[in-house]
């Protein structure tokens, strides 16, 4: 059953993602959450690994999620699932697209879809940021205001993971200074993460 579920989930992801790569992340994360296949932090690690390995991010993520959920056969189901919609569309209706890719109705449809995709990607970024950089969830902070006294408000390290924030700022700085391939950004960030464990004193 898991195999069929994996296949259907990733088929849906392949069928409804426009814009590739990052636009797929919110869809994959919604499917994972719906089936509780893994926790969010595990999924965020998978995105990191997918970035560091060659090939399409969608395929990397599908293979990884499939393997973690149901072994080799699971990774085959997920990967075939994510690739199949594209293939079917191209094999059977690509003539339509060859003719109509500049049709105004296509343009207008994308006029409505694009801001949704932009919103989905930004939300994915915010969710990943809050899971990796905030030590308490927003709900926890809001729902238990009595626990937060003035001193802990000042002590920001009880809310955010300082090393993560510092690494993020360094990465932003490097990116501003020089246009660098995402792969190397990730490698640099990984090295900084490794070093950060020796720097934490408090």
């Amino acid at each position: 059953m898991t195999y069929i579920k994996l296949f259907i989930s990733f088929f849906k992801i392949g069928l409804f993602s426009f814009g590739g790569g990052y636009a797929m992340i919110p869809l994959i994360s919604a499917e994972i959450a719906a089936h509780s296949w893994m926790n969010e932090l595990e999924f965020i690690q998978i995105i990191g690994i997918a970035e560091m390995t060659p090939g399409p991010i969608a395929v990397n993520a599908a293979t990884f999620v499939g393997f973690k959920t149901a072994g080799i056969l699971g990774s085959i189901c997920a990967t075939v699932g994510v690739a199949l919609p594209s293939l079917l569309i191209i094999l059977f209706i690509s003539r339509f697209f060859f003719k109509n890719s500049k049709h105004p109705l296509m343009k207008k449809t994308f006029y409505g879809i694009r801001p949704v995709i932009a919103g989905l990607i930004l939300s994915a970024g915010l969710v990943v940021a809050s899971r990796t950089m905030l030590l308490k969830s927003i709900n926890e902070i809001v729902s238990a205001p009595s626990l937060i006294n003035i001193s802990s408000m000042i002590n920001i390290s009880s809310f955010v993971d300082i090393p993560s924030i510092i690494i993020l700022l360094i990465i932003i700085g490097i990116n501003r200074w020089k246009k660098i391939h995402p792969l190397f950004l990730i490698v640099i960030a990984g090295i900084l993460g490794y070093l950060s464990q020796f720097l934490i004193i408090a």
Binding site: Q45, I47, R114, I121, L122, G125, V128, G190, G193
Partner: peptide, 25 residues
Amino acid sequence: AVFVGINAAVVFLIIKAAMKMMKAA
């Protein structure tokens, strides 16, 4: 520890992709 860093870079890359898409959309 390595993933503390990698996750930060992932956040950056996703937000960067979002901003690019926002500009176009």
